[in-house]
Design a binder for these strands. Sequence first.
DNA 1: ACAAGGGCGTAATATCTATTACATCTTCGC
DNA 2: GCGAAGATGTAATAGATATTACGCCCTTGT
Lengths: 218, 218
Amino acid sequence: MTDQTECDRLDRRRRAFIEAARELFVRLGYERTTLGEIVDRAGGSLATVYKLFGNKEGILEVVVFEKASSGATLVREAAEKGGTPQEILHRLAVSFQAHFLDPEVVALVRIVIARSVSNKDFARRFFERTATRTLDSLQQLFADWQDGGIELNAPPHILAELFLGLFVSDVHADAISHRVGMDNSLERLRARTQFFVMGSGVLENKNANISFEGSNGL
Amino acid sequence: MTDQTECDRLDRRRRAFIEAARELFVRLGYERTTLGEIVDRAGGSLATVYKLFGNKEGILEVVVFEKASSGATLVREAAEKGGTPQEILHRLAVSFQAHFLDPEVVALVRIVIARSVSNKDFARRFFERTATRTLDSLQQLFADWQDGGIELNAPPHILAELFLGLFVSDVHADAISHRVGMDNSLERLRARTQFFVMGSGVLENKNANISFEGSNGL
DNA sequence: ACAAGGGCGTAATATCTATTACATCTTCGC
DNA sequence: GCGAAGATGTAATAGATATTACGCCCTTGT
């Protein structure tokens, strides 16, 4: 009974449970998914589920937090490629849309909102790990631009909220309407980026030196 | 047994059930509210609930659709008072915020999203009666402005989505985070309106004649 | 006061599912 | 092969609640 092999065996089970649970949670929601179904799909047994996750809520936590990541990485990636603010913002818009409107992500958001009624702390932690972090990261980006000499129409944290809001509102609509008549065309995305560019004021800084080293730029 | 009195008696019961149900749904959510609790609070009996609403879902529908109204009225009211586009938009922002961030409305939105998994049609109808109608009404407002000679940076339907999105994203954040660190100050609201004004391009039409008769203006 | 229709209250039904208990079988190092 | 740790499968527990059934009592109009 080497720890390693034991670990492997349990880990494989664990993975199987998580995959099965995610698939079912996404399709049926949390309440309508029974532990029995998860076991049927993943193999193994109820006893093991309880050993690994404690209870039903435990497996939900693992599933949700495994999938829910902040957009901070996306912000960094988009910024590192350089270019004008418009270019950076558009790249960011593309990856934000792909990330936030991923049907699995939307389905999990639905579940988190549903559970937020009886388990506020759970929802709050989710919010922290996704929205709050993304906001911080966006705010930093805009602050860096500002330090680099770009004049903005509003403080960075306000702009961060507004930019993220462009996508959050879509997630919300999707969560309710289940994609009735949703248009995710590139044209629409471009219009939004353009709108943000105009509203934030970065357009008026066409010739500003934008180095992403940020605060020490200029 | 005049129809009138019968009607009154039943109607009063009906009202009591609806009020009790709403209060409980808002506080506990749909699943955790039992019909027994509703009856305890409203008086009357289970049998009457079933006679009036058919089943548990029936009473939810009544509660939700009674409270969920579109913002079309708000749009009309804000526009009728006249003024510059900035003024109109700011008035609209104030009433949108009050309407959409009403805690009862947010709580019902949570419920609709939760139920949208198992009852897509319900959620879709809700979306139609709220978001879609509000969007149409906003689009009309912007189209009227455009017809009145104001140049806009984007088509009216895109702008309508963007403006509504400013508030929807707040509803979404509220729905998940339950108002952790939410700032609904007037300053913030003003910044948003200003942002929209800049992004949409209406600022560049300072001297345009804006009569709300719309298409026949100018 | 009366007759009756209909709401009231209670209890029974019926199902569903999280959670626990337990005996059995696998796996894995030795 | 062996022995033990632990996963497995099954079944029992236990509590909750939507929904139905039914007999009583009150309201109401004459």
